[in-house]
Design a binder for these strands. Structure first.
Lengths: 328, 328
DNA sequence: TTGAAAGCGATACCAC
DNA sequence: GTGGTATCGCTTTCAA
């Protein structure tokens, strides 16, 4: 039935060396003479041997780490998430990790899933579920599993987090619209309890206030979805048609808002997004937006990951990445 | 430094039973008396014990299977992929598997990545890299790793595959356009060597021929991207403005084509997509498209996965799922 | 039903 | 540098 598996012992025997020698040829940091190395590799090749990562991880679970990382994500329907996810997993793979995916829909899942991941001795978890309740975060903290948060931080700052400077993003948007001479502005929120949405709103409002401009009309939503952006713009068209410019908490909302305006209004107000998803550059949208520098975010996540794993002291800090305005 | 890990032995000692008893309480198929079960669970709870999946998998690698599955994906920039991916991983999680992700950009990566996954003793690999060369597929076959292909099959039909009936999809599109009385049609391809694109084209052309309609103008592309759809439509506008209807190999292409038409032409030809990504239902597009029933695809993949794992005989079959036209 | 003991496959520590 | 060997945490025969 099941094929006999080739073990390091088989290779050792075949090559006429000890199992230790085989092990050493496959662990970078160890020293083997070129001669034995050759013999081992030849034998391995002849037998079709590949080291068993499970066994390896079992032995040095505790010391070296298993080589796996849990990646917790949600909201794949928002175009920003897959974009981020793709880059993140590629970076992890390149760094030699193999990502175990935890796709979360409801808040309640995440704790269970992390338990499962932890059972697999993942070295750490990278949590990018933007809309993760504080309660859920707390429970994850109890897990004693090294974590890096992405796109959110925990209130008590007990966990490393990497996120963009959302307030600054809001300010950029405010400046852009204000510089264009617009004064009656609106903000379309994402999830009300979402950190990103809240901070972007704060930055936007604060900057307008600094410039002595009227506070924007704020339209609240329950999510970051296209449809919410669409409906929000409908409300603006109907109840605040005088609005001269709109800042949206994310690109997906902005796409909805743009379409609502195009299809249901003759007026053309500038709509500013936030994220700079690849879609923002589609000719059909050409959305002016505030870019989250995803490559940098990912790079920083990997840096923080290493810090957390090395038990570095100042690891529990939040790193903010500067966004930049992309005018289209 | 590292926290002392709680092992089954600790629990056994604490509960006053043997390690075997602990093991048995945690493996469904085994029998334990209610009394000992209670003691074990109480002890586990008191100590905060969770079985080590690594060790468990190591022991019964070979017999029971590890509980992990490799998921190979690519092209996260095409909105269909994340959509599929999200549902697939959720289904896997629900079935008790934990997906190890392999995000592939180039063809060459995949073999290496699968080797890595295999080292982790994944039970099987689900390969949804639509644009995977035949050569790469062959090399994967040599791996002796149980596989399920998604969205493509291998020519020699040695591997189970689940994909939608793309030819039928093409026929649906042809009928829809022909029923509308249109005769001068065009087809915008995706990756020329992509199976989905080829089959959709074949079905489309075949059906037109059956109905004695002229063969469509075919515009070839190197990928399934929005930009390619946009450029393709530009070419139609410039060189074949008389075209009355367009069928695109996927939704993303159709979005590009629609936008090109909207922005650069006064004419309005029906544009038909293929996939039915969530975006197709956006008010900005309201794309009539041929739906790939993703839920069914995923369900079938899990069925085939079980078959492959049980070493079932007829497992090497291709299952085709019927797509359906969604008129918007 | 239960416990004792033999592995699963690889690594690290210890002598040589 | 190299080879023996205990060990990682769990499961599973085999007797009792």
């Amino acid at each position: 039935m099941s094929v006999k598996r080739i073990t390091s012992i088989d290779v050792a025997r075949y090559a006429g060396v000890s199992p230790s020698a085989v092990s050493r040829t496959y662990t970078a940091q160890h020293k083997v003479s070129a001669a034995t190395r050759q013999k081992v590799l030849a034998a391995a090749d002849a037998l079709g041997y590949h080291p068993n990562a499970l066994a390896r991880a079992l032995v040095n679970s505790g010391r070296q780490g298993s080589g796996t990382v849990a990646v917790v994500m949600s909201e794949f329907d928002n175009p920003f998430q897959p974009y981020l996810f793709s880059l993140l997993t590629q970076a992890l793979q390149q760094a030699g990790y193999i990502p175990m995916l935890i796709n979360v829909t409801a808040d309640c899942d995440i704790h269970t899933s992390l338990l499962q991941a932890q059972a697999w001795q993942v070295e750490a978890a990278i949590i990018s579920a933007g809309s993760l309740s504080q309660a859920a975060t707390e429970r994850c903290l109890e897990l004693q599993l090294p974590m890096v948060l992405m796109g959110r931080e925990d209130r008590q700052k007990k966990v490393t987090a990497v996120l963009s400077d959302n307030r600054y993003a809001g300010r950029l948007a405010a400046d852009y619209l204000a510089d264009a001479g617009l004064t009656r502005l609106a903000f379309i929120s994402g999830r009300q309890d979402g950190q990103a949405s809240q901070e972007r709103q704060q930055g936007f409002c604060a900057r307008l206030q600094e410039r002595a401009l009227p506070a924007p009309l704020v339209i609240l939503n329950q999510d970051y979805a296209y449809q919410s952006g669409y409906r929000a713009m409908q409300r603006i068209i109907r109840h605040a048609p005088h609005a001269e410019g709109v800042f949206c908490a994310c690109d997906a909302l902005a796409f909805g808002a743009l379409d609502a305006q195009r299809l249901e209004d003759h007026r053309r107000r500038p709509v500013i997004g936030c994220d700079d998803t690849p879609m923002a550059n589609w000719q059909g949208y050409r959305l002016t937006t505030v870019r989250q520098p995803v490559e940098q975010l990912v790079k920083q996540v990997l840096i923080n990951l290493k810090q957390v794993l090395s038990g570095c002291a100042g690891a529990a800090a939040t790193v903010r990445i500067q966004p930049e305005l992309v005018v289209r």
